[in-house]
């Protein structure tokens, strides 16, 4: 069922679309250009057409979202909540971290724009996550007058998204920062660091497995220390930069998949073989030689 709010958005979208077409025809657009949204033909006043078309698209999107979430439709909310009845709605009373997370994300975005594109990307990602979480929470907040019931409704909707999302984000973060550490260390240094890290992880995991009574706060503290160490190592690795790599396959590749031995020897002679911070990579077969 299309809700009242969705009807408003769809109406605005239709109006903006018609207005864009009228503006286009009034400013020397071609029929084909209007019908193909400027893909193959002139659209007349480009700025006005783009603004109106943007309004139409945004309104259409909002209409779809409003319809999908069936905003303020009590029957739909009971279906999502899996319940028979709902308390009457009241203003939200609970705490929400997303406003402050969104604010920090915007700050990160601004700092990233000035100093580091990576931070900008992270800011954008966090803004998107905040927007998604906030939307879901706000929607659930309005569902009933009971904060606990609202939380259950929100969890029912978001947990299936949050757990895989958080897992993916966690893995990506681990891979990224671990790779920064690996790339900044020398060949043997990286082997040594990660051998120690692996042993530490196994040791901690074994300890926890053999002592099930270990308190939750101790486990949290250990994980926190590990996470902070990884982040700190990754940030130091980023600032130190990658170690030097010499691409051998670019010189004298004979087309058989084997690098030109003479060129390899030449580079090895020039770079020296005893440097800890140097590595020679044969891109043709993936081996790395110190």
């Amino acid at each position: 069922m299309i809700t009242l709010g969705a009807k408003l958005y769809f109406g605005i979208a239709a109006f903006a679309l018609v207005a864009a077409a009228v503006l286009g025809f009034a400013t020397d657009a071609s029929v084909l250009g209007i019908l193909s949204f400027g893909w193959s033909g002139p659209i007349g006043d480009q700025l006005g057409y783009t603004v109106l078309l943007g309004l139409a698209l945004a309104s259409f999107f909002m209409g779809v979202v409003t319809t999908a979430f069936r905003d303020a439709d009590a029957t739909a909310v009971t279906q999502v909540a899996g319940t028979e009845t709902l308390p009457a709605p009241t203003p939200p009373a609970g705490l929400s971290p997303w406003p402050v997370v969104a604010a920090f994300s915007v700050a990160l975005l601004v700092i990233g724009l000035v100093v580091q594109p990576l931070l900008f990307g992270l800011g954008v990602l966090l803004v998107l996550i905040s927007a998604l979480e906030w939307t879901a929470t706000a929607w659930a907040d309005r569902a009933t007058g009971d904060p606990v019931a609202n939380l259950a409704i929100r969890n029912r909707l978001m947990v299936p998204v949050e757990i895989p999302g958080a897992a993916l984000l966690g893995i990506a973060t681990f891979v990224f920062f671990a790779s920064r550490v690996l790339l900044s260390l020398s060949k043997w240094g990286s082997i040594a660091v990660f051998a120690v890290a692996a042993i530490a992880i196994i040791a901690v995991a074994s300890l926890i497995a053999t002592r099930p009574a270990t308190s939750r706060s101790v486990i949290t503290a250990v994980l926190l220390v590990g996470g902070v160490s990884l982040l700190a190592g990754g940030i130091v690795g980023i600032s130190a930069g990658e170690r030097d790599f010499h691409q051998l396959g670019e010189h004298g590749d004979d087309g058989t998949g084997h690098a030109d031995d003479a060129a390899d020897e030449q580079i090895e002679t020039e770079t020296g073989s005893g440097s800890d911070n140097d590595a020679v990579t044969d891109t043709t077969d993936g081996d790395t030689e110190g």
Partner: peptide, 16 residues
Amino acid sequence: TITETAPDTGTTTGSA
């Protein structure tokens, strides 16, 4: 479907 009764969601209910 709207009542003043908190839903039976398996959690603590009725908390205002």
